[in-house]
Design a protein around this nucleic acid. Structure first.
Ligand SMILES: [Mn+2]
Ligand SMILES: [Mn+2]
Ligand SMILES: [Zn+2]
Ligand SMILES: [Zn+2]
Lengths: 139, 139
DNA sequence: AGCCGGGCTGGACTGTGTCTAATGCAGCCC
DNA sequence: GGGCTGCATTAGACACAGTCCAGCCCGGCT
């Protein structure tokens, strides 16, 4: 398991490297995401951070997650209409979404080849491509 | 332009073919989606249907759209965290999403070749694959 | 006419996410 | 130390998509 981002000291450096002032709350929120390498909703992140005792407010959780996304430290995954998932993995990759359980799994994009995509409309630049494979338990 | 689904009579048949009892409200909602071949939110659909005079309630719009999705007459497109888009095109195809304007465009999947996807986890069946290319106006 | 069942509806409700106005706080200058 | 400045945090109000519920409507049947 990769522990690049798990210690608070390393996380502090990572935040600074992304132009983010490393406050206590921001470090704890980053830790929740980077220590587990999972896709979490804002709600889940807040529950994790405040597990022992209250460390941060709802407003700060949302402010921080939006800041992390703007600074490209994490990314959003839009797959469930009721909530956004936050992904600490910013490498290009795709997702497997279990519609039954709501579990979201990474799919390496290394081996995937996509060809035949049309040219973009004039004056448009691609910002990224999301590939989501929706699966469900058989019967 | 394909007018298979635009007349109320044809829509009535289409609804029946999908096991949906064709009421006035359901026909109007289907008409809003199939006459324009666009991706519309529930809100937009309700505005269209009630444009001349009030014909349907919010509850019915949502009930109907969920019924249409369950009966595979239309499909949802999850691309914007604030609202669901409904797509009258159920043929396999991908989407181009202009994050600036919120406009959603179809991309034919006929020419696209995707290879190297991993095997699905044991006991899982694919329900579909969403491909969304996020674009924005250059500078 | 009376019953039945599906469909429709206003309005209450839920849950995410945003906004605002107040407070805290750390660094700086005097 | 005391004031200033700017950013971060916060509680709570708010916005808003979507759901739920309980009652009504209405067409078909007997
Ligand atoms: Mn990084
Ligand atoms: Mn069809
Ligand atoms: Zn991921
Ligand atoms: Zn489409």
């Amino acid at each position: 398991m990769d522990s690049r981002h798990t210690s608070r000291e390393k996380l502090t450096d990572t935040l600074r490297a992304h132009g983010i002032n490393p406050t206590h709350q921001r470090i704890e929120i980053a830790h929740a995401l980077f220590s587990r390498q999972e896709h979490l909703s804002a709600d889940q992140i807040m529950a994790i951070v405040n597990e022992r005792h209250c460390e941060t407010s709802k407003a700060t959780v949302y402010n921080t997650l939006n800041l992390f996304v703007a600074k490209a430290l994490i990314r959003e995954v839009i797959v469930d209409p009721t909530r956004v998932f936050y992904d600490p993995n910013t490498e290009p990759h795709y997702h497997l979404y279990d519609v039954q359980s709501g579990r979201l799994t990474d799919v390496s994009s290394a081996d995937v080849r996509i060809s035949g995509l049309p040219d973009l409309p004039e004056g448009m630049v691609a910002e990224g491509m999301d590939v989501i494979i929706r699966v469900r338990p058989a019967i």
